[in-house]
């Protein structure tokens, strides 16, 4: 809405070891990337001026993301490809931007627009078998509800709403990979990892490592019609 400002959307990954960053740490790190890149960023007005920047839905500590988004407002128009190259030069490899494009200033905010996350949950463990995992997950989903408690707060997830598409389980040497989509919202999002941990027998998970990656973050145009924000 501000004249003379250009809203640039950047798609970046949070991968490898940097999956262990918290959302706040990602925000700080990317602000510093923008400063190091020497971009002409806009500054918010007010008591405590800061870089005008907005992020998509937060990723928890330990969860990787392949297509995460941020918007940054620039005060001078610079070719998106140039901005991208400048940012890449000063980014850690595992928190690097890989796409940049200007979007209309009036577009909805990333948090409001991005309500679908697709995930890959990799479960390592010799005792975990594909068919068994699939059956267990489907059974849990058919139950229709998942109740969680965190720091004394009880939350009930409606699974038919939260898991809008069929999930896919693929066996591989030494474990299984589970792909699923989750509907996210301001009232809190279901953690795919939690779903998997609930479904699989605790004994099987004891020694197993679980790695979660958000593979895509999407806009839901209409029921079941999803698209990327750039």
């Amino acid at each position: 809405m501000t004249p003379g400002e250009y809203r640039l959307r950047v798609c970046y990954g949070k991968t490898g070891r940097l999956r262990y960053l918290s959302h706040l740490e990602v925000v700080h790190a990317l602000e510093r990337v923008v400063r190091r890149a020497g971009l002409p960023f806009a500054i918010t007005q007010g008591f405590s001026p800061h870089m005008k920047m907005a992020f998509g839905p937060a990723l928890p500590v330990g969860t990787a993301g392949e297509r995460e988004y941020l918007d940054v407002w620039l005060t001078r128009y610079t070719e998106a490809a140039e901005v991208l190259a400048a940012m890449k030069r000063v980014s850690p490899d595992e928190l690097a931007p890989h796409e940049a494009r200007y979007v209309a200033d009036g577009e909805r905010s990333l948090t409001a627009a991005l309500t679908i996350g697709t995930y890959r949950v990799e479960v390592d463990g010799k005792e975990i078998e594909e068919t068994q995992a699939r059956t267990a997950l489907l059974e849990l989903l058919e139950g229709g509800e998942l109740v969680t408690e965190r720091k004394g707060k009880i939350k009930v997830f409606d699974l038919t709403r939260c898991v809008p598409k069929d999930l896919r389980v693929t066996g591989r040497d030494g474990g299984v990979d589970i792909e699923l989509a989750v509907r996210m919202g301001p009232e809190g999002s279901l953690r795919p990892e939690l779903l998997v941990r609930r479904a699989l027998p605790p004994a099987a998970l004891q020694a197993a490592a679980v790695r979660t990656t958000r593979t895509d973050t999407l806009i839901e145009e209409a029921e079941g019609v999803w698209s990327r924000p750039m």
Partner: peptide
């Protein structure tokens, strides 16, 4: 790393131990 990583999900602020800072 293979021995440290499994511990990271069980502790606070694991980003202290992962290096990779600018």
């Amino acid at each position: 790393w293979p021995r440290l990583e499994p511990l990271l999900s069980r502790i606070e602020r694991p980003a202290r131990y992962i290096d990779r800072e600018w």
